[in-house]
Amino acid sequence: MVLIVLGFIIFIAINVVVKNNPVAAKFAGAGRILALVFILLGISTACVKQIDAGEIGVKSLFGSIQNDIMGSGLHFINPLLDVKKLDVKTQNYTMSGVNDEGNKAGDDAIKVLTSDGLEVTIDLTVLYRVVGADAPRLLRETGEDYRDKIVRPITRTKIRDNAVYYQAVDLFGSKRDEFQQRIYKSIEDDF
């Protein structure tokens, strides 16, 4: 888009200079050709979008999200379309008490109350991925910051909701796998 605007600016500047300075008229043809080259180059680059492996593209025209998605590869599109790229590979979101380990700075570990009334701090990593077919709906209803609007709050809520069924000793001992499966099932249902 920048090249298109630059081409129009060059075209207008050449016409103004030629009108005010007849000596510069001999350069008008070359200037107009240069402007045309910039405009055509801008249009051709705006029509081509590359989507990398593990990503999908969601088309947006003047803020209106379209339902069709673009898979990985090279695509020829309307130059007015804006393509938002989303990662569809498995991603992780870590909440940790170590300052530089998680996705948020500082202590982001989850503090939960267990069935015996004790407060337990849990470090957690959630693996998730965006389902390609649902990506337009995700962008339309949530936006590009779905990690902070969906992944983090739902995870924290489900951890707290499920921890109340276990005693503190069980969370780190014999029922840890059962606790993880219960969390996995409840998060999967909401995601």
Rank of each mutant, 00 (worst) to 15 (best):
V2R: 10
D52S: 14
R137M: 08
S96N: 14
L171T: 00
Y128D: 03
G102H: 02
E55D: 14
Q181C: 00
D116S: 04
K85T: 12
D108F: 00
S60R: 03
G132F: 04
K26P: 01
D134A: 12
E141L: 13
L81F: 14
V88C: 08
N103D: 14
P22A: 07
I33N: 06
E141C: 03
L40E: 04
L36S: 12
L113V: 04
Q181Y: 05
I187V: 15
S174H: 01
L74P: 01
I150Q: 12
Y93S: 05
V83T: 13
I43D: 00
A163C: 06
N103A: 08
F27E: 03
A35C: 05
K104I: 03
D116L: 06
G54L: 07
A109N: 11
T125K: 09
D100H: 09
A13R: 05
F191W: 12
T125C: 04
K185Y: 08
D68C: 05
I159M: 14
K104D: 04
K85L: 11
D170W: 07
I43F: 13
L139H: 04
N78I: 06
I159K: 00
S186F: 03
D190I: 05
V88K: 11
I39C: 10
Y128V: 14
E188N: 15
V18S: 15
G106P: 07
F27G: 07
V16P: 05
R147H: 11
R156A: 02
N20Y: 13
D68V: 04
K59A: 13
K89M: 15
S96H: 09
A25V: 05
I43P: 01
R147Y: 12
V126M: 07
G29I: 12
R182T: 03
P136H: 05
T125S: 15
V83Y: 05
S115R: 11
I187D: 00
N20P: 00
R32N: 14
R176N: 10
E55M: 14
R32Y: 07
N99Q: 09
I65A: 04
I43W: 03
F172E: 14
D148N: 15
P136N: 05
N15V: 09
L6S: 10
G42S: 08
M95R: 12
N78A: 08
L6V: 09
V151Y: 04
G29D: 09
S186R: 06
V58K: 05
S72C: 07
V131M: 14
T121Q: 04
Q180S: 12
F38K: 00
I4S: 04
D116C: 10
Y166W: 08
V48F: 10
F179N: 01
S72N: 13
K149M: 13
I56A: 12
I154Y: 06
S64A: 13
Q50K: 15
T94W: 01
V88D: 02
F38H: 02
I39N: 06
K158M: 15
S44Q: 05
A46V: 01
I69S: 02
D148T: 10
